[in-house]
Design a protein around this nucleic acid. Structure first.
Length: 219
DNA sequence: GCGACAG
DNA sequence: ATCTTGTCGC
């Protein structure tokens, strides 16, 4: 049901392009203070989408942005970036201050073609990025450290698994211009900021779509 | 071959 | 994710 609106040749075509994506990474800042998260909320009935970004500076919310639009490309597993990417990228671009790290509610490396939305969007933005997903798309858990599992796929380490404050699993994977080692360090040092920013972005996009739905003429 | 499948 | 009411449980 979810992929009936995409032609099989379209799927193959976009998957191929995704596989070929490759770009020189920028460098993750040594002094990481500006971290943003971005999320989107949908109204499937009228195809409206609102993306919201929340920027934290030194652990404090410093700026937010919202982008409202209407989606055309449907959700299709593995091609999520085509569905949501344009909107979350637009929201991050509306921030006046450029983040040093962007967190996406999606996969990065932990993807069948190693390049989920977090990877693609970080590359488009030229901002180092990570994916923090609530469920896994691929891979299995391997015990690693206390409170930190590794996510493995086809014998490869592709990410980490943590538990949030409600003890629900979170699947972290490197996005653009970030190594697994840098991701592990980021989790150790900035996990709470990343999750606070994600919650704030989620909350804002939810609030904003209600406003958009109440005023149909504004979009 | 069949099922699963980020949001 | 969204569409949706009441309901079960800590």
């Amino acid at each position: 049901m979810q992929n009936k609106s995409i032609d099989t040749s379209e799927v193959k075509f976009f998957e191929r392009i995704q596989s070929l994506v490759n770009s020189e990474p920028v460098v993750l800042s040594k002094n990481l203070t500006r971290i943003c998260a971005v999320d989107a909320t949908y109204s499937d009935k009228d195809r409206k989408v609102v993306a919201a970004a929340a920027l934290y500076d030194n652990g404090v919310l410093s700026e937010t942005s919202v982008y409202s639009g209407r989606f055309t490309f449907p959700y299709h597993t593995g091609l999520f970036f085509l569905h949501e990417g344009p909107f979350v990228v637009a929201a991050v671009n509306k921030l006046k201050v450029k983040p040093q790290l962007a967190c996406f509610d999606a996969q990065g490396l932990a993807h069948p073609r190693s390049k989920g939305l977090a990877t693609i969007c970080g590359m488009v933005l030229e901002i180092p990025s990570i994916g923090i997903a609530k469920t896994a798309l691929i891979g299995k858990a391997l015990q690693y450290k206390d409170g930190l599992d590794k996510l493995n796929y086809k014998g490869r380490h592709v990410g980490f698994i943590t538990l949030d404050s409600a003890k629900k699993k979170l699947f972290w994977s490197p996005g653009y211009s970030i190594s697994l080692e840098q991701l592990e360090r980021t989790i150790a040092l900035h996990q709470e900021i990343c999750l606070n920013a994600s919650r704030e972005a989620h909350r804002l996009s939810k609030i904003e779509i209600l406003r958009v739905k109440t005023k149909p003429n504004l979009h």
